[in-house]
Nucleic acid binder design. Structure first.
Lengths: 224, 224
DNA sequence: ACAATGCTTCGGCTACCATCGAAGCATGAA
DNA sequence: TTCATGCTTCGATGGTAGCCGAAGCATTGT
């Protein structure tokens, strides 16, 4: 029974955390639900078997997201019923907005700006994306050389791909990983466009004022 | 949490029984769920507290109905999610196997045999079913007259349809309702093929040995 | 190669809750 | 009144499922 899946508090917390459409790792969901990873793993297996969530493997992580909008819709309906009896569930609020804006994912740019950047590259045919695989076009190579002084030979690596789609933590969409993603992030730092936050362990990336401008000039969308 | 309320099999059965919009008494709901009145009372109190059902006192009875269409909608949504993963409710049902085998649904035959009967009628083109609507064919009329001495004029009723699909709660498939369903059940009783259980309030229908044979001869499937 | 991280599986423990018997109220009938 | 019916509350029991510690894979980094 599907309702029984949603009925458990721990699972309900996980699902609620996924309601914004973003995908979260198993560990993050465990933390959201306030349970250990083992227990979370068991819950997630059940949710997956019940067709409520879908996993996406990415490196050592397993990202989970709601299967589709139908699931989200039913969950909203349940929340609506719960709300009118005054038994609303208290949701842990969204986290650091700076973290959502721009942060380090391993060694490349993630967050709103990271997703925006890949969007821009894709829409201008500088890269071609097919599911998880991303390929740099010749126009893309010219673009990188011209604006960021990045040459293709800097990007070769024995085991790591040049481009790769990486599921973004805060947005529920992909940003650019791989050696190119790392090289671009490194260049942003060298150009003093951005720098990792001084706080130890923080993943926040702070953009300078000029950095923000330059970044927007290169990758900005019309809405900015 | 609302979902936890729906998650319990017994409560889910009650709610399913109320999905047609009609109000049922606490005892009837207990029978639908295959549990004792005490247990049902506890469940109904929880459902009421959760705002899923509303009681209406009437004499010694307490009628329960779904609070409103929103509740029904959410329940349908949950059923939809359950259906598409094939995770239909399996382990539920009345404890009494006799109740699953054959029972009275209002005034017609339900349970395994009821579903089997409609299956047989449909497969032999004695009736034609389109979703909830069922139509008696001319072959069907001949069949009824020949084997059960039921003539079409016995079935006319100002407001009630001759045939109707009624969702069987233990089988999750349709059985035959309407005036025809009632007439056939009545004929089974008159022919001493079957009789309602003597226990007051029981919905179990007991088939006699000869009745079981005759029924199988008319509506039996290959598996028997 | 080795270590570290993320996640899963396994085994046991525990707590919760559905369940039922028995008794207690309420309503309606004789 | 007295009895019968319908439903609820109380108390005790048992099965189930959530939970975590420890260990086992899988992937990645050094």
């Amino acid at each position: 029974m599907v309702a029984a899946l949603v009925g458990d508090p721990a699972r309900a917390n996980m699902l609620t955390a996924l309601m914004n459409g973003r995908a979260l790792t198993a560990s993050e969901l465990a933390q959201e639900a306030g349970i250990t990873p083992q227990t979370a793993s068991s819950h997630l297996a059940k949710l997956e078997a019940g067709g409520l969530v879908e996993p996406e493997k990415q490196g050592r992580h397993r990202y989970y997201r709601l299967t589709d909008d139908d699931v989200a819709g039913v969950l909203e309906g349940l929340a609506g019923l719960a709300a009118r009896t005054g038994h609303m569930r208290v949701r842990t609020g969204p986290k650091d907005p700076a973290l959502r804006r721009a942060r380090i994912c391993y060694d490349h740019l993630a967050g709103d700006l990271g997703v925006q950047m890949l969007d821009s590259l894709r829409s201008r045919n500088l890269v071609k994306q097919k599911k998880q695989e991303i390929e740099l076009t010749t126009e893309g190579e010219r673009f990188l050389a011209k604006h960021l002084q990045i040459s293709p030979d800097m990007l070769s690596h024995p085991r790591r791909p040049v481009c790769k789609a990486c599921l973004d933590w805060s947005e529920r969409r992909h940003h650019l990983a791989g050696t190119l993603g790392a090289a671009m992030m490194q260049r942003f730092a060298e150009l003093k466009w951005a720098a990792r936050d001084a706080t130890p362990g923080s993943r926040v990336v702070n953009f300078t004022r000029t950095g923000e401008k330059q970044f927007a000039a290169l990758f900005g969308n019309s809405k900015d």
